[in-house]
């Protein structure tokens, strides 16, 4: 589904990603962990297509296509979804409007008929139940005045409505209370299927208690320093990232 080869990227003059290699197959869930500032969000942003991050080398293939050649919105319509670490507030643009426009843009791209207002509302209300969200949120501006946790929940609502093939969740768990974490995990798990893949960026094991990853990677200093199974996350929880420097010297590479 996704093949990242020696990906290098910089913001301004600063090199941030220094050769990322990652293979994600359909049906898999990959967790990416790593210290603050190691480049996790930068990687997520490059995959989503943020323009201020310049790709300086390497390649990304998504479903056989050159992902980096696609415009931001084309990637979205092709099924790539990024749940933001810091969801953006957009005063004046209605939440319900965005959901509908997003869903219909994607359907149109796939040659499906657009949903009318009735069908759309039925669908979105259903998904809101799943996310245990109050319907009044639909009629507010996108993320405007939402609490930190509400914003994260809103990201996952968008995700379950859009049903992406590749979901990238950038620290969706941070800022969530214990109940909200369960609800959000439930939403994410409802999308797990053999055709879909997910990349979870997180700092904490507790998310991975709810969403079991197939692989765990440690990103540090712009490279994936170590990869392993779910047990790697537990080890990190115990021991932190102090070892990363050694691993770097030992030249451990991702599978």
């Amino acid at each position: 589904m996704l093949s990242i080869k020696n990906l290098q990227a910089s913001v301004g003059d600063k090199a941030i990603l220094k050769g990322i290699n990652l293979e994600v197959k359909a049906g898999e869930v990959h967790a990416i962990m790593g210290p603050n500032g190691s480049g996790k969000s930068t990687l997520s942003n490059v995959l989503a297509g943020r323009e201020n991050t310049t790709v300086t080398g390497g390649s990304v293939t998504y479903q056989g296509k050159d992902l980096l050649a696609l415009a931001v919105e084309e990637r979205a319509r092709e099924g790539v979804f990024l749940a933001f670490q810091y969801p953006v507030e957009i005063p004046g643009v209605g939440n319900v409007y965005l959901l509908k426009a997003a869903l219909n843009a994607q359907r149109k791209h796939r040659g499906l008929p657009e949903l009318d207002a009735m069908d759309f509302l039925a669908l979105v209300k259903d998904k809101m139940k799943l996310m245990e969200m109050n319907e009044s949120m639909l009629y507010r501006a996108v993320n405007e005045g939402f609490s930190g946790g509400e914003k994260k929940r809103n990201e996952i609502l968008q995700m379950v409505v859009l049903e992406p093939s590749l979901a990238i969740l950038d620290e969706t768990d941070s800022g969530l209370d214990i109940d909200a974490l369960k609800v959000v995990s439930h939403g994410v798990n409802s999308l797990r299927s053999p055709e879909r893949a997910m990349i979870l960026v997180t700092h904490y094991q507790r998310l991975l208690d709810y969403i079991k990853p197939d692989f765990v990677h440690v990103l540090s200093d712009g490279r994936i320093q170590r990869s392993g199974g779910p047990e790697l996350a537990l080890e990190l929880e115990r021991e932190g990232y102090a070892w990363v420097g050694d691993a770097k010297n030992a030249g451990v590479v991702a599978p």
């Binding site: 323009e51 415009a71 931001v72 979804f81 990024l82 953006v88 957009i90 997003a102």
Partner: peptide, 19 residues
């Protein structure tokens, strides 16, 4: 904001108009 809207599949022009 522009980037956010586009990551949801909204065309660049429409996203601009909306903002």
């Amino acid at each position: 904001q522009w980037f956010y809207l586009r990551t949801r599949g909204i065309a660049a022009d429409l996203a601009r108009t909306l903002l």
